[in-house]
């Protein structure tokens, strides 16, 4: 077990120690930490990475707002409200959950071109929103199904509007689910690679993954700076992980049920 964990973390270890080395240290002593530490690698890498941080954070926030917002209200409505075409509309989403996404890449790209979305934040956020709805609406609906119905009914009897019921009663109850969704959407946007690679061709619009993919050619022989760039790509989420470890460990497993 110890061996497995060590092997899992070994690449991370190499990235981190390597990011503090200069070229000579990397070529001569790659596998062990060396002194002096070359902190300037991080300064150089940060200049390169910083715009991608900003871009990715922007895309992630936009994606979370749209994806989680839409899925939360829809999941609530499908569970708690009665309206015409409720079942067929739910089926429309439900069927999509079992359709593999592999064929979507090229037609989605063509659609994005036709809508003029290439090289805009919306090409990331809107497609994330649209394709994530089936799974998250389903999860949210199941979660709302498990909440006590009498609460909603009581408020409705008092003549509260549906919007009020949702905002004041349902939303606070759904908070853990909203947090879990947000975490998974952020991780998805942060790690996604092929879609941003083909839709964000303008270097000024790149995400962090596309940025470090191109970094190896941009860095030339400055391997220390390159490894610092890799480390920086992982850093924000690693920090978040350590800050709220319990939340991550349970949240990521819950998302894993998505098969």
């Amino acid at each position: 077990m110890v061996a497995i964990v060590l092997m899992l973390l070994f690449p991370l270890y190499l990235t981190i120690i390597g990011s503090f080395k200069d070229l000579e240290q990397i070529l001569n002593d790659f596998f062990v930490p060396t002194l002096p530490l070359h902190v300037e690698n991080y300064a150089k890498a940060f200049v390169y990475i910083a715009p991608y941080y900003v871009n990715t954070a922007l895309y992630a926030v936009l994606s979370v707002v749209l994806t989680v917002g839409a899925a939360t209200v829809a999941g609530y409505a499908f569970s708690a409200l009665r309206f015409p075409l409720r079942r067929p509309l739910f089926m429309l989403l439900f069927i999509k959950m079992f359709m593999p996404g592999v064929m979507l890449l090229v037609p989605s790209f063509v659609l994005a071109v036709n809508l003029g979305l290439l090289n805009t934040p919306f090409v990331i956020a809107l497609f994330c929103m649209g394709t994530s709805q089936p799974f998250w609406v389903f999860v949210m609906k199941t979660f709302v199904d498990g909440q006590p119905r009498e609460l909603f009914e009581a408020m409705r009897m008092d003549g509260a509007s549906e919007l009020r019921i949702f905002w004041h009663l349902a939303l606070p109850l759904l908070r853990p689910m909203v947090a879990l969704m947000s975490l998974n959407v952020i991780l998805f946007i942060w790690n996604d690679f092929i879609w941003p690679l083909v839709t964000l061709t303008d270097p000024g619009m790149r995400t962090i993954t596309v940025g470090i993919y191109k970094l190896s050619s941009a860095a030339g022989l400055d391997y220390g700076m390159m490894l610092a760039g890799y480390a920086l790509a992982a850093l924000p989420l690693l920090i978040a992980f350590f800050v709220s470890m319990r939340f991550f460990v349970s949240g990521l497993t819950a998302g894993a049920v998505k098969l």
């Binding site: 209200v73 037609p107 549906e162």
Partner: peptide, 15 residues
């Protein structure tokens, strides 16, 4: 309540 989810799914997934 469901319009954002349905519309976005139809345009960016079903289409």
């Amino acid at each position: 309540f469901i319009s954002a989810a349905i519309i976005s799914n139809v345009i960016f997934d079903w289409v």
